[in-house]
Design a protein around this nucleic acid. Structure first.
Lengths: 335, 335
DNA sequence: CCCAACGATGCAACCGCGTGCAATTTCATT
DNA sequence: AATGAAATTGCACGCGGTTGCATCGTTGGG
């Protein structure tokens, strides 16, 4: 169906090498030859087969984009940023949706079969071991939104989740809350574990504060709402909650509202992410801002750097987060 | 780096053909040979290079998944469903984000360069011509959420947007509204155009109703909110609005709330999609349900069918929509 | 016991392209 | 105009697999 370099060569009356060279950056071709080949190519609607060429060059420009967060709206933006950023650099994202049923090992093998040049794991819930599996297979990998580790074996770009947990704790303490809780994401998610650890670590410095915690089943509105309803109806209500993610916060707010409680007077909420919805007047969520754009941009930079130097020394890039004050926490004590 | 069939062949003391055959479904290999090859393959961590084999088989199992709706949360679910559905059938989605800056023609060429077996265009806003460009290039294509056409040149799976517009109109008429408006999505989107056309068509049968319309800049919360604010502050307020999509509806609701108006007493809203948020108690949106799962599942079925019969006669699959009654429209007149 | 038929295997060509190398052309220089 | 260097071109091989065809060993039926 599609024209090959042979067809073009014949039509232009030159060798296949010549065709290949006119379509190869920096190859030695005379101006006359190039024009001749390009004319023939145009007439035949030819464009080189990227896969065939990858066989000899060893580069496919395919990047595996693997994630399991297909329910958190924040990841739509993440996918948007990743796909655009990769496209802008001539790279093609091969999307992998890692559900609970899919075998992680199979995904690794699949991406190797397709000879991807690199893999970016975009997930705040997958364990480091997953990204490491790619590294072991010799594939450049960067884990975005991954777990911070002091001695990483793969590139990690994200935030310091523990520090965020502490930050949330400090904020609640400053506001004078004395009975607080953390409504974390799924227990298996590394981000949940770390945020929770930081939260408790900081709270340990404030023994006057009573601390509790529980887990939502997923990073989703519904899970946040369900868990908050359970807490409220169980009569275990704290004065304020740190929710592990904005989606949980917003779900929780809906639950609070359903039970007729006033925010922030009767119950306080602080989230994490600063997703677009957090700004809505009807929500007005106090939250900790995670710099998504920077994380994605930095991940892509790192990936591009690894393509030219696959053995680049593993690096951790942590971006600072900060509290965005809105209306779901009461004002700081002015004592 | 990675082992090749030659390596495996040498190690097992057989020919490369034998290796190829043990990894090819339905090839003639003795049980003894297969075991021998599999052992060597296991020891070397070999798995066949999908790209190299595609060179001779002509199939890559790559499917271009192109969209430009990276801001409507509904599409996160769409991507989730598509990626999982494709994966389950051994197909790999190559994701293409079609922004305003990217040249559509370049995308077509790019996907051809990667020899994708097929393309699914998942977009409610792209014109039919875009999908047709793939067809012209000889690539199987199905346009999901595309424009209904009586004489399609490509496969289209989706809903009858005009009928939805009429359905919304009827619903408002039944509720006794006499001054209504449509808050449509971007003017260039085919779905906007068709929903609007249907809306006006139906309203033409009810001359007692005063009808107006305007466009949001995008299918997004913010755009819906902004446009509704403009309408309210311009004093052009109707009694009820049909919003072209739930995200617009929810943005509009936020605007209505900001201006201190009561829903549904002072202003009514009906949306389209029935996204998860529409069910939230704090939103409780009356809307028209679009059967996303069915549309995606059907699109994938169609794509798979086209892979074995590329010249399959173009087909349009339209799924019925229905009104989901919640709390943002007043009760029907009981006259 | 012989021969036909069939399944298993290897050989070699090919898929579409890149690239080292040698041959050839071009061009500036003397 | 002759000469040497530099630029251009083509040849042939290889990238990792697949597959038609010929060969070879088995098996089964007469």
């Amino acid at each position: 169906m599609a024209a090959t370099s042979k067809d073009v060569a014949e039509r232009a009356g030159v060798s296949r090498s010549a065709v290949s060279r006119t379509f190869t950056e920096g190859a030695s071709v005379s101006e006359k030859m190039r024009r001749r080949v390009e004319k023939a190519a145009r007439e035949l609607g030819y464009s080189p087969n990227a896969l065939a060429s990858s066989l000899t060059t060893g580069r496919t420009k395919l990047i595996g984009l693997v994630s399991n967060n297909f329910h958190n709206p924040i990841f739509l933006e993440v996918f948007d940023l990743f796909t655009r950023g990769l496209q802008d650099r001539g790279l093609r994202p091969l999307l992998v949706n890692l559900t609970d049923e899919t075998d992680p090992e199979a995904s690794v093998q699949m991406l190797r079969q397709y000879s991807v040049d690199g893999v970016v794991v975009a997930s705040s819930t997958l364990p480091p071991a997953f990204a490491e599996a790619f590294r072991k297979a010799g594939v450049p990998v960067v884990h975005s939104f991954g777990r911070y580790a002091s001695a990483p074996s793969v590139h990690v770009v994200g935030i310091d989740n523990k520090a965020c947990g502490r930050m949330a704790a400090q904020t609640l303490v400053e506001r004078g809350y004395t009975r607080v809780g953390m409504l974390a994401g799924p227990e298996s998610a590394t981000s949940s574990q770390d945020r929770l650890a930081g939260f408790f670590e900081e709270m340990a410095l404030h023994p006057q504060v009573e601390v509790s915690h529980s887990y939502a089943e997923a990073y989703s509105f519904d899970a946040g709402r369900a868990e908050m309803l359970r807490l409220l109806d169980g009569g275990m209500q704290a004065e304020a909650y740190f929710c592990g993610d904005d989606v949980l916060s917003i779900g929780a707010l809906s639950a609070v509202q359903s039970r007729g409680l006033k925010v922030p007077d009767e119950i306080g909420i602080i989230g994490l992410n600063d997703m677009e919805m957090a700004r809505w007047e009807s929500i007005d969520l106090t939250t900790i801002r995670q710099p998504i754009r920077q994380i994605v941009a930095s991940s892509i930079e790192l990936m591009v750097a690894m393509l030219s130097d696959p053995d680049r020394y593993p690096e951790v890039r942590i971006f600072p987060c900060s509290v965005v004050e809105r209306g779901t926490l009461r004002a700081p004590r002015s004592d």
